[in-house]
Design a protein around this nucleic acid. Structure first.
Length: 419
RNA sequence: GCGGCCGUAGUUCAGUUGGUAGAACUCCAGAUUGUGAUUCUGGCUGUCGCGGGUUCGAAUCCCGUCGGUCGCCCCA
């Protein structure tokens, strides 16, 4: 018996799954309210799709294998290549800007760590075909809306906004060639938390100007200002900060980039994204401007836990029918009818003593217990609110269609019991 | 790929200088067949992560391995 999932994979028991669902719900709700449409692609893609974008080194980090048709395939590590392919093939059928989102489950073969497993869900939002800063503003405000639906606010998280193109001209001005650029950007990407001495050692003559830039003396980025203006107008100005230290490791970003961090700075980035105007073309598609972000469930869940924001576990049943031994048939008839009527109804299949049934009702989290006893012959059931232990009587009668009519009906129970 | 800590019942853990394993909670069943938060009684489960070594004897010491966790490396 193997009692554990594979390394880096997670089981979601009802409680954890409930927390996961509430995250999904916030993501989807924020996306739809913001005018994004949901799409989905295959979990399994050809290995080449990822090699094209990231080079052969990526292969070591993928779950990949040969299928029975001898194709090299990989579980998707990210959504962007799939998204790019889908957009490239059909974009003429959609008015621009295309605003799509997805909540894919992604896989990476790497060492599991805090907030990073071998499998996770990631909220992806992308805008294609919009060159202006409005695209970034849309994405950032959608992202903030999503976080706020989960109970997080600007006191908990911060959207750090930066600009790759600003860094491009900065590096050009200081004589960094195209070839060294990626390396320098990578160094900058993880300079946070380093001491001025360490920076000096790694950056050499660049250390001074970089220091200035970080302190806000590096001059303005028009694109970044535009984005901030847009986000501000949409009502999320206080969530954002300009922070040129954010450069993002990925090579393909071309413009404004951003990351969401918890205010305490303890956790990994909750989300990250930016403009990738050349990527769609590079992946063999059309030359379309694009911006997007991704937000994983793992770090987010950790942040929610840290902030003590817990989703309420919905009970498995709203109404629990408790029947005396001689009234089982009536009990089942009620259960079936309540279910058809749109209520969540459950009962004790073992149907032991009433006390046991009530215990089960409470353990299952039901709000009401409908007690079917010998009074049912006189047209009466007991109705009990489990939490308050208050009990009243409800009347029932057979309707013309043979259905059991409850008086009052379940929608009015809360009023009748008076809690 | 590298390093720290950890791995004992379903769960959380205890286990003293090495002497063949315990508690709490959960779960199941009951306290004379109509009402559950307390109480009482009884019951279940462990190859003490796995493999090897030292020893008369290992949950305990040593090595390896797998898994977990945290931090690096790398990277979304």
């Amino acid at each position: 018996m193997t009692g554990q999932p594979l390394p880096g994979f997670r089981d979601f028991f009802p409680k954890e799954h409930s927390a996961l669902r509430s995250i999904f719900q916030a993501w989807r709700e924020a996306s739809r309210r913001s005018g994004f449409s949901e799409y989905e692609g295959p979990e399994l893609e050809s290995l080449d799709l990822y090699k094209e974008k990231s080079g052969d080194e990526i292969v070591g980090q993928l779950y990949h294998f040969k299928d029975k048709g001898d194709r090299e395939v990989a579980l998707r590590p990210e959504m962007t290549p799939t998204f790019a392919r889908m957009v490239a093939s059909q974009h003429r059928n959609y008015r621009k800007p295309i605003k799509w989102f997805s909540v894919p489950r992604l896989f990476r073969y790497e060492r599991p760590q805090r907030g990073r497993h071998r499998e996770h869900y990631q909220w992806n939002c992308d805008v294609v075909g919009e060159k202006s800063a409005a695209a970034e503003a849309e994405l950032i405000s959608t992202l903030c809306l999503g976080l706020s639906l989960l109970g997080l606010g600007p006191k908990d998280v911060v959207v750090k906004i930066s600009d790759r193109s600003w860094w491009d001209s900065f590096l050009a001005k200081h004589g960094v060639g195209e070839k060294e650029k990626p390396d320098v950007l990578r160094i900058l990407d993880r300079m946070e938390g380093s001491t001025p001495e360490q920076r000096k050692e790694k950056l050499g003559v660049l250390a001074g100007p970089v220091e200035d830039a970080w302190e806000g003396r590096g001059g303005d980025s028009p694109a970044l200002m535009e984005v901030r203006k847009g986000v501000e107008a949409l009502g999320y100005g206080e969530w954002c900060e300009t922070d040129l230290r954010v450069v993002r490791g990925l090579a393909y970003y071309t413009g404004v980039v951003f990351e969401v961090h918890d205010r305490s700075g303890k956790l990994r980035a909750v989300a990250g994204g930016g403009r990738y105007d050349d990527l769609l073309k590079k992946l063999g598609g059309e030359d379309l401007p694009a911006t997007g972000f991704g937000m994983g469930d793992a770090v987010l869940a950790e942040l929610l836990r840290e902030k003590n924001i817990q989703s309420v576990e919905p009970s498995a049943a709203e109404i629990f029918v408790v029947a005396e031994a001689g009234e089982k048939a009536m009990g089942l008839a009620l259960v079936g009818q309540l279910r058809r009527g749109g209520f969540c109804a459950d009962y004790d299949p073992g149907a032991g003593k009433l006390g046991k049934q009530l215990e089960l009702a409470e353990a299952k989290g039901a709000r009401w217990a409908l007690l079917v006893g010998r009074e049912s012959a006189e047209g009466k059931f007991g109705l009990k609110e489990l939490a308050t232990r208050r009990q009243v009587e409800v009347r029932w009668s057979k309707g013309p269609d043979g259905n059991i009519c409850l008086e009052p009906n379940p929608g009015e129970w809360a009023k009748v019991v008076g809690s």
